[in-house]
Design a protein around this nucleic acid. Structure first.
Length: 573
RNA sequence: CGGUUCGUAGCUCAGUCGGUAGAGCACGUGACUCUUAAUCAUGGGGUCGAGGGUUCGAUCCCCUCCGAACCGACCA
């Protein structure tokens, strides 16, 4: 066991645990516990006139206790919610022996313990639907105190609110903050709804490699790892696009994957190093078709989660009702800046960007400039779902050239609440053009662009064989979940967001030093010298420690009897 | 990576213009047969994130480090 000092409450709980065992009660029984009803089911369906739920079995975690003499109330929380349980001494202990109530229930049980109860449902004098327990069973003893959150009239008191602790100990967050659970349930409803939609269309859900020898399909820096047997560098995927397109080449007409992708980049409230994207590829379609698909799919998701297309997000109400607004990128820029840049060349764009207050540097080409202007002046203003179409070719090496306009590609993004939620193309299936685009990326890479795409010969070979015209989509599940759950941080839609590891400084107790035979007066000095654990002491140089201790004694005029060198040597063993 | 703010009891927070700390809940003990932020009485619990500096003395002032939140940079 490596725990250092236990708090008073933890010690008391461990003592309670031992007392239970001494009384012959197993605090962690192996047998299953039959449950006949859930909390919300009981509360919604109990009817005094029907006299239903008169023989039920229920289990949950003790969240609060109100004990008054021979009668007590506890609130038990199950997966659905909370329900009050009434425990009466003479009901639980009908015989002379009242130990089960007086000792086991009142003394040895705590908030946080999980118990099962059997009994009947009734209404208290105050009118609250409750379970009258005829018997209770300890199912799991908790030896760490829970944050106690209290509530009255919709006000929450002492909420467990420190974000660091909430994310590091999400289980606690889920236990004591009910709305948290709800956000995650809605996240799963979202993916279920999306999967249903895609399956109903007959598309095939597939899985493709996460460990990739060449990372591609997006512009991002990867995580790097190594395979021992192959003695080869592998990357965690930044996207699965190229693999899915190979499956389209292979003859599947529609494939999709809910993919965990990994990008070795900054973290903030919109970015986690690992995140989920749903990518979809459908043969014989183009980006116009895909826009309609996205509208229809997201509208359905909103309906499935909220029962309406209108979703409250922060200050705004976002309406996913079809059809969504559509802007070409040039139109959007003109709309928000009043400037028509559609016929501008690089120099003129640069001047315009500067005029709009955008930082410009020499490495920026035409595409980058347009993208910057859009990102700075338009994106944040687009609250209602809006499709932005027709991007500069430089930014989109995997998208097909626009059927009408030179220098653009057939690409769209959906922007919602000021953020991109998806990205889609008419996929580039011209193998000669694709090779050229990759080669242009290589040039960018040579100029130092760390995010330029790598040339993937394997992928090029595949489309040499011929890929049908295809439309592809990547939709950010975390971003969409944020919108659908009204969360302003990605950490609120990820169970376990990435956190820096906590470094805890370990200090061994005085008792442990005493056990080693080290006299009390020296322990503090040894710890002061930096040997805070017996382990660090065992790694110390005994001679140096001896000198340091005697020196400290002399310098600080402590007047202690110096230990012998042999004594110190023994302490360090 | 830069700026701002924060880290004090199991939880939520106060506080000390520098003299080793308080509250509520939780916990212990006692009272109480329908309570619901139960109540009443009483008691215990803290290396004030870590390390160093200034000082007779630091939780407080200064520096470094660790962790977090927000804003920015980067990143679609």
């Amino acid at each position: 066991m490596t725990y250092t000092e236990l708090s008073e409450q933890e010690k008391i709980r461990r003592e309670s645990l031992q007392k239970l065992i001494d009384l012959g009660i197993n605090p962690y029984p192996a047998a299953k516990y039959e449950i006949s009803a859930g909390s919300t089911e009981i509360i919604n369906n109990f009817d005094e006139s029907k006299n239903n739920y008169q023989d039920i079995s229920f289990a949950g975690r003790i969240m609060t206790r109100r004990i008054m003499g021979k009668a007590s109330f506890v609130e038990l929380q199950d997966t659905y919610g909370k329900i009050q349980v009434y425990i009466n001494r003479d009901v639980v202990c009908p015989d002379e022996d009242k130990e089960l109530y007086n000792t086991v229930f009142k003394k040895l049980l705590d908030i946080g313990d999980i118990i099962g109860v059997k009994g009947e449902v009734f209404k208290t004098q105050m009118g609250e639907i409750s379970i009258r327990a005829n018997e209770f069973t300890i199912l799991s003893k908790s030896i760490r105190p829970l944050p106690v959150v209290k509530e009255k009239d919709g006000n929450t008191y002492d909420a467990f609110s420190d974000p660091e602790q909430r994310y590091r100990m999400r289980y606690l967050d889920l236990m004591v903050n009910p709305h948290v659970k709800n956000a995650f349930i809605n996240r799963t409803k979202l993916t279920n709804s999306m999967r249903e939609y895609l399956n109903a269309k007959g598309y095939l859900e597939v899985e493709t490699p996460i460990l990739q020898p060449i990372y591609g399909g997006a512009a991002a820096r990867p995580f790097k790892t190594h395979h021992n047997t192959l003695d080869q560098t592998l990357y965690l995927r930044i996207a699965n696009e190229l693999y899915l397109k190979k499956l389209i080449v292979g003859g599947f007409d529609g494939v999709y994957e809910f993919a965990k992708d990994f990008r070795n980049e900054g973290m903030d409230r919109f970015h986690n190093p690992e995140f989920t994207q749903m990518e979809l590829y459908v043969a014989y379609k183009d980006y116009f078709w895909m826009m309609e698909t996205v509208e229809e799919m997201v509208e359905k998701i909103a309906m499935d989660i909220h029962g309406t297309t209108k979703v409250k997000v922060g200050q705004h109400t976002i309406d996913f009702h079809r059809p969504w607004k559509r802007f070409t990128m040039f139109e959007a820029i003109e709309h928000y800046t009043g400037i028509d840049i559609s016929n501008m060349e690089e120099e003129e764009l640069k001047v315009t960007a500067k005029k709009l207050g955008i930082d410009v540097d020499e490495s920026m080409g035409k595409g980058k400039l347009i993208d910057e202007i859009f990102g700075e002046k338009c994106e944040g203003q687009l609250i209602q779902p809006t499709f932005i179409t027709d991007y500069p070719v430089e930014m989109s090496p995997l998208a097909k050239k626009h059927r009408k306009i030179d220098g653009l590609v057939e690409r769209f993004e959906a922007i919602c609440n000021g953020k991109e939620i998806c990205n889609a193309y008419s996929e580039l299936n011209d193998p000669i053009d694709q090779r050229q685009r990759f080669e242009e990326q290589l040039l960018l890479a040579k100029r130092g662009d760390e995010e330029a795409m790598m040339l993937d010969e394997d992928f090029l070979k595949a489309i040499d064989y011929g890929m049908p015209p295809t439309s592809g989509l990547g939709i950010g599940i975390d971003r969409l979940a944020m919108i659908m759950t009204n969360s302003d941080s990605i950490q609120d839609v990820l169970f376990f967001p990435q956190m820096r590891p906590e470094k805890k400084i370990q200090v061994d107790s005085k008792e442990k030093y005493l056990e080693k035979g080290i006299p009390t007066e020296w322990i503090e000095l040894i710890q002061k010298l930096g040997y805070k654990t017996l382990k660090s002491l065992s790694e110390a140089n005994p001679g140096k420690l001896f000198n340091d201790l005697c020196g400290l004694n002399k310098k600080a005029k402590l007047g202690l009897q110096n230990p012998t060198a042999d004594d110190v040597k023994k302490w360090c063993e």
